[in-house]
């Protein structure tokens, strides 16, 4: 006779087995569609480059990885740090960080505004935030050109109200890239911020005022600590795609300065150096994983404090 405890254990085991069975299609798809190709990328990064693109199959070499960080000078053959790659990496990281900050500063009040509306009207505001997702990013970026062109909307309005006398060059500058990326990624910041603000018990804010806290103190000591998981989630959601951004720098930045996405594309196209391209892609992934680790660590810390 099985004891009730044994029956419970068996039921639990069956339950676990069923869960695995039910999730296996998803796991197989993840393995085939995500991890499998990644493995190919990793493999390619260790092969010898083919003469006209592609790789020489099963001829291994560390040239690709070597090229990520170091280069042999084309003129005097000395070994130096690959400064071109490093400045492109740095530009990407810098622009992504600034984009994250800009979207945070714009998104925070927006999310606060939505979260403090009466519940039945919040859905309408959220719906408005998601409208840009209905249109393809390429089309939105080209529309942005129309806004910031020398004879575009921004310049015409500024000239009309007499703020400036000649058009300001915004197109094809880093400002244009920043402008475009902040626009594209703003909803990704607003939504997680809203999700954590919605849960705030606003009686805490009232309590803060009752105890003579200033507005700044309420924001800094009550609201921000409670919204922290949303800030982190939003920042990650904006930072990671910004790092690999390809369309916006290409269309608004005028292509004069590469970002990481463009550098990788060059290796698979005109540069004909697939192993280097593969190694650069993996380097980008390592940076992203690192950013995610920081997130997970912070999330578990703040998650412990208030569920």
């Amino acid at each position: 006779m099985a004891t009730p405890r044994e029956i419970a254990v068996a039921a639990e085991q069956r339950d676990i087995r069923n869960r695995w069975l039910l999730s296996s299609p998803a796991l197989i798809i993840i393995f085939l569609a995500a991890i499998g190709p990644l493995f190919v990328v990793l493999l390619y990064s260790f092969m010898l480059k083919g003469d006209y693109g592609d790789v020489k199959p099963w001829q291994f070499s560390s040239d690709g990885w070597f090229g990520v960080f170091l280069q042999r000078d084309i003129f005097d053959d000395t070994l130096t740090i690959a400064d071109a790659h490093i400045s492109i990496f740095w530009r990407s990281v810098k622009l992504s960080l600034v984009t994250t900050l800009v979207t945070l500063f714009l998104g925070f009040p927006t999310a606060y505004f939505i979260a403090t509306r009466p519940p039945q009207r919040r859905d309408i505001w959220l719906f408005l935030v998601t409208i840009p997702f209905w249109t393809n990013i390429l089309i939105r970026t080209f529309a942005m050109q129309e806004v910031i062109r020398n004879e575009g909307i921004v310049n015409s309005v500024m000239i009309w109200i007499g703020l400036i006398s000649a058009p300001v060059q915004i197109m094809f500058t880093d400002w244009a890239i920043l402008f475009g990326m902040a626009y594209v990624y703003l909803p990704l910041m607003v939504l997680p911020l809203y999700a954590s603000m919605e849960k705030i018990d606003f009686r805490l804010v009232e309590a803060g005022y009752d105890l003579y806290a200033t507005r700044l103190q309420v924001l800094w000591r009550i609201i921000i600590p409670l919204v922290k998981p949303g800030i982190i989630a939003g920042s990650i959601l904006v930072f990671i795609p910004s790092l690999g951004a390809y369309v916006t720098p290409r269309v608004l930045g005028g292509g004069k300065n590469m970002m990481l996405g463009n550098l990788i594309e060059l290796q698979f196209g005109q540069g004909r150096n697939w192993p280097l391209g593969a190694a650069l892609s993996i380097t980008l992934m390592i940076i992203v994983t690192f950013a995610l680790l920081v997130y997970v660590r912070n999330a578990s810390k703040s998650g412990g404090s208030h569920g």
Partner: peptide, 10 residues
């Protein structure tokens, strides 16, 4: 040539 090109676009 690709290296010069990268230096140009860095």
């Amino acid at each position: 040539y690709a290296k010069i090109w990268q230096q140009l676009l860095k």
